[in-house]
Amino acid sequence: MKKKNIIIWAIVVVVIAIVGYFSFGGGQKKSTNKTVTIGIMAGVKQDDAIWKEVSKTAKSKYNITLKFKKFTDYTQPNKALSNGDVDLNAFQHYAFLNAWNKANKTSIVAIGKTVITPIRLYSDKVKKVKDIPDGATISVPNDATNESRALFLLKNAGLITLKKNTSLATVKSIAKNPKHLQIKELDASQTARSLSDVTAAVINTNYAQAAKINYKSAIYVEPVNKDSEQWINIIAANKKDKNKQEYKDVVKAYETAKTKQTIKKQYGTAEIAAWDIKLK
């Protein structure tokens, strides 16, 4: 009887050990797969190709599955992020985010960098910036962030100077205008169409592409320097989530040499990988 009890207890101990082993993951591979949903803008095949490459890296290296929610309106991705409809978004630069947070009282933060898309000055009338005549008309986008960007471009091109400590420039921020340029403010989508009516136009790359304007034909390209830092595009998260490891891993999956190669393949020099650029 004593021997029988010993056998029964031995069986019980083994069963408990087996149950505990499997319960705590010792007998099976623990699943660490995560799914992260990112809000992006729709309709850009080049960006889709870049994110496809990033998705491969995220899955193979960090066991993260990336899903995408596409938007057609620039006001939507930050709303979706604040509402929890997406985990991250990647569509905006620092200047847009700062303006959004201020206007909407949100706490969205940048957790990684993606690309910078330099804006360019185009002309059908002159071949070089120095040939822009006195009194020439230059069209610029009229929304706050892009107008500021355009005016900083004109400043860097040596056409105007801006008042000291200007961050968000308007035409009122112009300190010196030696060529007496006339600044024509237009909706950003109309600047490309204005080329035939003005001496030169500052045009965002996406609108230049839509108008079949070769970005290589620009007479001046926005330099990558301290002035342009605010135009670097970012991966953004809600502030409370900025330290989540899976989100940090998504950033790592993006900021790779392979992603940089894909950006160059898709965009040439129209877009530049921004996470390791040196700002002069």
Score class of each variant (00 low, 15 high):
251 V>I: 06
88 L>A: 02
140 V>P: 05
269 T>D: 15
30 K>M: 12
142 N>F: 08
187 D>I: 15
31 S>H: 03
10 A>H: 08
29 K>D: 10
218 A>Q: 03
132 I>Q: 04
188 A>S: 14
208 A>E: 02
94 Y>C: 10
153 L>N: 05
28 Q>E: 11
200 A>L: 06
140 V>C: 06
146 N>S: 14
242 K>S: 05
71 F>G: 00
231 W>E: 11
277 I>D: 02
93 H>F: 10
194 S>P: 06
205 T>M: 14
56 K>H: 01
198 V>K: 06
125 K>R: 15
118 P>N: 03
270 A>Y: 05
253 A>W: 03
157 A>I: 00
8 I>E: 13
198 V>M: 08
7 I>F: 15
48 D>I: 09
44 V>P: 00
9 W>H: 15
41 M>F: 06
154 L>Q: 05
66 L>T: 06
170 T>V: 09
148 S>H: 01
280 K>T: 13
31 S>F: 09
72 T>I: 11
138 I>R: 00
27 G>W: 06
59 K>P: 05
120 R>I: 07
240 K>H: 05
83 N>H: 06
54 V>S: 04
110 A>M: 07
180 H>V: 04
74 Y>E: 12
71 F>E: 02
72 T>A: 10
114 T>F: 00
101 N>R: 01
248 K>C: 04
173 S>P: 08
12 V>R: 06
18 I>W: 11
24 F>D: 13
27 G>K: 08
85 D>H: 00
150 A>C: 08
